[in-house]
Design a protein around this nucleic acid. Structure first.
Lengths: 334, 334
DNA sequence: CTGAAAGCGCTTACAG
DNA sequence: CTGAAAGCGCTTACAG
């Protein structure tokens, strides 16, 4: 089963390769009706399918973008990348999604692989390392957008949540409901990952605003595996918190597992808010109050400006961050 | 910022392009140490990155496979595609995942786009139409694996769940727990989609096995939007079922929403089993009894045999279906 | 041990 | 209105 090429079509139709190519690219300006028909017939008879690889080589565009998420396990990542795919799809672009698995080396390898494949641009949720790599891409003016996390000192467009506000919305709500002692649990903060750091800052600022004292013991950061132990320890404290803010969906899951296992009642024994509006929040019992990120909008915007930059070289991407507003979804866990 | 090509490296190192290419492909057999070092240095100095598109054109292999899922909203799809990506990643292959959104036209367009992009093979969850397209690919001996669904009359390898057994496990468990009247809800059965049809068959066979009479009124199939209404109607029946088997994760979600809204107690008012071990099953209250699919194993196997076929042309893919066993996860909803 | 040349399947500027 | 030719950035069989 030999592959049919443009040369076969040309021969079959009795025209030149150029003409077939013109036809394929819909440059009909000077093409005679008869020629057009001949080519069309030849393509159909032979079942010809153009080779996009050859085309890309010549055109220096693959009509493909790469997206590298830091960790695909977050619903945030899957929702955002779905939005990105939708936009790309409408514009005739393909998407290759890679999962860096929170590993900077993997991230680096993916960036290199994707660039070797000549993707036209990149949307990445950076792990936090590889700063030099990003700096180099800025210099090259390579089309790239950061998502969820950023480097304040590297001039790259970034689409971020107003993370401090996310924590503040939660704290305000706790306070409004009469709680005064609350804890924050995040996944490891060590790596100075933007949202974790900012959510922590927002949490502390909100306490201050309400004239409450931050108890350092009530702020925990642990790896996914250690969250339950950390929470357990936290709840054994003499002045234990009555309410917990879960820094992301993965933390929330662990908290809910713990709560179930220890047969605590929400919100009686422990009030709870999660950042990230998990899919089951509305039909969980009790329905879980969350702070929702506008995942769809964030994905949409990053894809839109990236594609704009790709299509129109002169378009300048914003060289700073763009912030999106979180929304409190009031339900029954507080 | 001009792209550095192999010609630049060759010039810089004072050797020919062939030699640089040999070096890149690690064909060191006859290469002098001095040459090797020169080339290495030139590559580093220039920051040369090979162009995979050019390479693919020549080698007629993109080291990329396409996967088209029927509907990405199912956790099954995301889990399986994650397993596929893992395997591919280990073997140095890339994956482009597309979502057909249950739309045969979209499926067709994706297949054509991916083939135009010269992917080396395809794993697809077929929507059910496009039979001719699949037949043609069989004729061409194009590497393709079907997943979750298949065409019994088209000789294509397919990785499937033992769907009848999935229903039977559920029914057996209901019976064991003393239930005698149960319903089955699936998403639309109209299109004769393999798992839905087979789960229905399994359900009916299981009833028969237990000497129970199938009540046609208790078997419902509706679009996602209509499930709650359908369930409502079902529960208004005079002889209403005491237990429900949700045919997949999306159905389960709708049932849980309904249950919550109508303040029913599980399992007292309604016992429940869902096919697909949803992530929240274990920490939902009550913890939900499910029938789990070995999603990881299924994805792994499809990727493995596909890659084997791609790498070793002579390897013959199975020309029939391979079935995987479901597992009952006993929890508290029955 | 290394290089010149052909070729992968397209597109495009230019000639006629 | 259409075609011949060059070229995109690689790889590879072959010559030396």
């Amino acid at each position: 089963m030999k592959k049919i090429t443009i040369a076969d079509v040309a021969a079959h139709a009795g025209v030149s390769k150029s003409t077939v190519s013109q036809y394929l690219n819909e440059r009909y300006d000077y093409m005679g009706k008869a020629t057009k028909d001949k080519v069309k017939a030849a393509i159909e008879e032979l079942g010809y399918q153009p080779n996009a690889v050859a085309r890309s080589l010549k055109q220096k565009s693959t009509k493909t973008i790469g997206v590298i998420v830091a960790n695909i396990l977050h619903t945030f990542s899957t929702e955002v990348s779905r939005a990105i795919e939708d936009v790309c799809n409408e514009e005739g672009f393909h998407t290759i999604v890679c999962n860096a698995d929170d590993d900077p080396d993997k991230e680096k390898r993916y960036i290199e692989m994707l660039r070797a494949k000549q993707v036209d641009g990149l949307i990445v949720f950076p792990t936090g390392n590889n700063r030099d790599l990003y700096r180099k891409m800025v210099e090259e003016d390579y089309p790239i957008i950061l998502l969820d996390r950023w480097f304040p000192d590297i001039q790259l467009p970034a689409i971020l949540l107003e993370n401090e506000l996310a924590s503040m919305l939660a704290v305000d709500h706790f306070v409004e409901k009469g709680y005064r002692k609350f804890g924050l649990i995040t996944t490891s903060i060590l790596k100075h990952i933007t949202p974790r750091q900012e959510r922590l800052n927002g949490f502390e600022k909100a306490l201050e605003k309400h004239g409450l004292q931050a108890n350092e013991q009530f702020i925990r950061s642990a790896s996914k595996e250690d969250i339950q132990a950390s929470l357990h320890d936290l709840l054994q404290q003499p002045e234990r918190p009555e309410a917990i803010l879960a820094g992301n969906d993965l933390v929330l899951t662990e908290v809910l597992k713990y709560v179930k296992q220890h047969q605590l009642s929400i919100p009686e024994d422990l009030a709870l808010i999660g950042i990230d509006d998990v899919p089951y929040a509305s039909f969980y019992t009790p329905a879980i109050t969350t702070v929702a990120q506008p995942t769809f909008k964030m994905g949409k915007m990053s894809a839109e400006i990236l594609l704009k930059k790709i299509v129109k070289k002169s378009f300048d991407l914003p060289d700073h961050e763009v912030r999106f507003q979180p929304t409190l979804m009031v339900r029954d866990s507080v």
